[in-house]
Design a protein around this nucleic acid. Structure first.
Length: 320
DNA sequence: AATGCCCTCAACCGCCGCAAA
DNA sequence: ATTTGCGGCGGTTGAGGGCAT
């Protein structure tokens, strides 16, 4: 009856991941692709449960993650989406390319909540706090806008229901159908506005960039993870140099002194530094870089592999 | 310089829905 | 039909770093 247990919990390591563990996990996924987390720890030589490996990869190691603080725009997006969706962090994250639910959840709890409270807005209900408190607040523009929308919401006397989510999703689908773009599994990030009870407008967030939806990230095959061998590491900086701890020789890690400079959009999905970093990982002693296929990929010019393909369809579309 | 408090965020925990056996 | 594991999700925790005193 049932499946085999995913892992023997006895003797499994917990707590922060070491650089060595990160390297093992990255090596394994780049070699074997992303599938069957249950088998990953054993095959990768890790004393972790599959769940822990999955979380580490999806929340921290995935190369398509945008790192650093959320931009103002992303923050506003999170607030808007939270107003409609509540604490459905994964749904919210699916509209923010390169961001994880965990990251958004943390940012909400540590930054946005405080900001909203300062503005006299209840972060949970998105409605004004007690009027006495609200009257003390400065009347800045964002607050007025938020209050206006909240008043509108109150006028309608229609509390948001689960149904709203379905409407949003159907609207998003409609929107995606209308937008002419290469067929990929990615979805454009959008701004969702609920003007009237039944009127939801979807506005593309990033018209010029390819969309991305974490919810839709398929299992990744090894050949879908393209790592450039470019030596043209630029001075652009990643905001969190977790790979710095991997003790790679002869590699000057980007300076991370100015966190603001590294913030959000400065770190492209396919930042040269990051790609170079992964490449260096692959060239580590315990990796067989003589493997024919991978060598071929590694030796290709960066311009040919400027992005990581997240599914076969888009991968083929982008490259050929 | 030392101490304590606060903040951030990576990681864990527990639950749920789905699907495999 | 039932049991059980997997993957995903949201809530919570606690280590570590930053800051104030």
């Amino acid at each position: 009856m049932g499946r085999q247990p995913c892992c023997d919990k006895v003797g499994l390591k917990k707590g922060p991941w070491t650089a060595e563990e990160d390297r093992k996990l990255i090596n394994f996924i780049l070699t074997n692709g992303q599938c069957c987390w249950r088998a990953v720890p054993k095959l990768a030589g890790l004393l972790r449960c599959g769940k822990s490996c999955r979380l580490r990869w999806t929340n921290y190691l995935r190369p398509d993650l945008k790192r650093g603080l959320l931009s103002e725009y992303e923050e506003k997006m999170v607030i808007d989406l939270h107003a409609q969706l509540g604490n459905r962090w994964s749904k919210i994250a699916s509209h923010l390319p390169g961001r994880t639910d965990n990251e958004i959840k943390n940012h909400w709890n540590t930054h946005i909540k405080k900001k909203l409270k300062k503005m006299g807005i209840d972060p949970m209900t998105h409605k004004p706090l007690a009027l006495s408190n609200a009257s003390d607040q400065t009347q800045d523009q964002p607050k007025q806008q938020l209050h206006q929308s909240l008043e509108k919401e109150q006028e309608n006397q229609q509390p948001l229901t689960i149904d709203i989510d379905n409407k949003i999703e159907s609207k998003v689908e409609e929107h995606n159908k209308e937008v002419e773009k290469p067929k990929t599994s990615f979805e454009s990030p959008t701004i969702i506005e609920i003007k009237e009870k039944d009127e939801i407008t979807i506005t593309p967030l990033f018209d010029t960039m390819d969309g991305f939806s974490i919810d839709e990230v398929p299992m990744i095959e090894p050949n879908e993870i393209i790592v450039s061998n470019s030596s043209s590491s630029t001075s652009s900086s990643n905001s969190t140099n977790f790979l710095e701890d991997l003790h790679l020789l002869d590699f000057e890690w980007p300076n991370n002194n100015n966190k603001e400079e590294c913030n959000n959009n400065n770190m492209a999905f396919w930042d040269d530094d990051f790609i170079s970093s992964l490449n260096l990982l692959l060239n580590d002693d315990d990796i067989d870089v003589n493997n024919g296929e991978r060598k071929q990929e590694l030796d290709a010019p960066l311009s040919n592999y400027s992005r990581m393909a997240m599914d076969l369809e888009s991968w083929a579309h982008e490259l050929f």
